[in-house]
Amino acid sequence: MFIAIAIILAIVSIAGAIMAIHHKKLSVAIIASGLVSLTASVMFLLLAAPDVALTEASIGSGLTTIIFFYALNKIRNNHD
């Protein structure tokens, strides 16, 4: 059971990482990197590390994505 979950998480996180690096649209790439952090947080839960999972979900997946979007928004504002 845990092995099946781990395989699915590994596939999703690697696909998300490749998308974060290679997708043409920056907003999609940023969301994909947030997905990598989210799957990593579930992996930490499987590894019996609930503290780290909570931190990764709130900081790595939530706040980092939002800060990326604010920076992207500012760059677009300066553009025109």
Partner: peptide, 21 residues
């Protein structure tokens, strides 16, 4: 692209954390 490079850093960071745990 600079933003893409920074995204690469965050993916790198996540991978290292997974390995350490």
């Amino acid at each position: 692209n600079l933003i893409k490079i920074i995204l690469g850093f965050t993916v790198f960071n996540t991978g290292i954390n997974i390995v350490m745990v």
